[in-house]
Amino acid sequence: MSQHVPMHEGLFTWPSRKPQLLGSRCNQCSEASFPAQPDCRNCGSRDTDIVELGDRGTLWTWTIQTFMPKQPYHSDETAETFRPYGVGYVEMPGGVRVEARLQANSPEDLQIGMPMQLDIIPFRTEENGEQKMTFSFSPVMET
């Protein structure tokens, strides 16, 4: 099995059977941040801890990226294979709105307020065969 490596350390629990987004919470004012940071952007305190923000949330706003972004965008895609992707802010139970790629990429499939779930997905393959994983959200499928 090829190696699955996060795009960046500390964005989500990995490896994990049920990955969670990771952020930081301030012990002085209780505000949370994503990604985790050592200082609090609300009160300036440096007394913060890394916390799990959850793996489900609510869609707060969304758009669809229809054209392939220029560098620094770095995926495996070419102009021919580029597939539009959704982008949104998802309200997490950990108390912060997180910007993320969305798997859905059609306006019919996205609605403010809809429940969303976290997916850790392969984003690009490096020359050494490593698969870089990133976080994304998709609408919760009710069964």
């Binding site: 795009m7 960046h8 964005l11 990604p35 707060w60 706003t61 969304w62 758009t63 990226q65 972004p69 620094p72 965008y73 770095h74 995926s75 992707y85 982008v87 949104g88 802010y89 910007e99 993320a100 790629r101 403010i112 984003f123 990133t134």
Partner: peptide, 23 residues
């Protein structure tokens, strides 16, 4: 910001204005 934010396609001003306008 760290590189992953740009590499995964989240760092576009057009996106932000669309997200803010949508809400």
């Amino acid at each position: 910001l760290d590189d992953w934010y740009g590499e995964t396609g989240l760092m576009l001003t057009t996106q932000f204005f669309a997200l803010k306008t949508q809400r």
